[in-house]
Amino acid sequence: MTKANIREQEAYSAFLEDFRPKRATLRNIVVAFFVGGLICTVGQGVLTYIMTRGIPLKQAYVLTSSIMVFAGAFLTGLGVYDKIGSFAGMGAALPITGFANSVVSPAMEFKREGFVLGVGAKMFQVAGPVIVYASLSATVVSILKLYVF
């Protein structure tokens, strides 16, 4: 048997510490801040513009997110968003444009497996967990809010 036992595994893991490259954490955080901030500023611009057209605030927010989803989807289609994502990490993934990227990228990727089992089945491969856990946590929070607090 050549699978190491726990003690050997721990020894190897400790040995690896000396070789572990430093992640460019500070650089990544700064870049995420600026790119994420920029995307939100664009969103704010869209929101402000929509409101000048006389649309009430609540609807304006909804429309803004829809427009930002389109923007993220379109940039993914053009093959640009993956580059923004590899440059900015969470700065590109956390805004709703990144959510759109996570829906469009598998949809495009698996088109070659057909429109039902490819596009249809794989579209939420990455975004699915986000929707599942958003629904679960929101339900739990709402129930607590209604009946406990």
Binding site: S65, G77, I96, F99, V104, K111, S135
Partner: peptide, 26 residues
């Protein structure tokens, strides 16, 4: 819940599908 996020979700499905029809991964 879903009423409130409907616009975001449906946009993702619609635009996602549209982009998959229009573009290929590079």
């Amino acid at each position: 819940g879903f009423k409130a996020v409907s616009a975001g979700l449906l946009s993702a499905v619609l635009f996602g599908y549209l982009m998959a029809v229009l573009f290929n991964p590079k």
